[in-house]
Simulated assay, not measured.
Amino acid sequence: MAILFIPFATFILFYINQMTNMLCIQKEIPEDRQPKVFRTINILITILLISSYVEILFT
């Protein structure tokens, strides 16, 4: 299961980062606040992916 989930999770994280970058550009978020936005979104998505993996693993 991990063999399939890890590439999927990497793709999701990469795509979410692209969308976050487009959001920062569209909403004209200042350069000094962008790392905080990226960090927050990456942490939340990582928690979501880990919880999804655990749910799939134990069902």
Rank of each mutant, 00 (worst) to 15 (best):
P30A: 07
L57Q: 11
S52F: 12
I45K: 01
F11T: 08
K27F: 11
F11R: 07
E31W: 05
R33A: 12
S51P: 00
I56E: 08
T20F: 03
P7D: 02
L4Q: 09
R39L: 13
F14L: 12
A9M: 06
T46N: 09
I50W: 06
F14N: 10
S51W: 08
L4I: 11
I3K: 13
E55M: 14
I56V: 14
E28C: 03
A2Q: 08
L44N: 14
I45V: 15
L44A: 15
I43S: 07
N17Q: 13
I29W: 02
E31A: 15
P35L: 08
I3A: 14
P35E: 07
M1K: 05
I43H: 04
I47D: 07
F14I: 04
T46W: 03
Q34I: 14
L49S: 07
F11M: 12
N21C: 00
T46H: 01
I12P: 00
M22Y: 10
Y15F: 15
R39W: 04
T20H: 02
Q18G: 13
I6H: 01
F5V: 11
M19S: 06
V37N: 03
F11E: 08
T10F: 10
Y53R: 01
D32N: 11
T59E: 13
I25P: 00
D32S: 09
A2N: 14
E55S: 14
I16C: 08
A2T: 11
L49A: 07
M19F: 10
I47T: 10
I16N: 04
I29F: 03
Y15L: 14
C24N: 13
S51K: 05
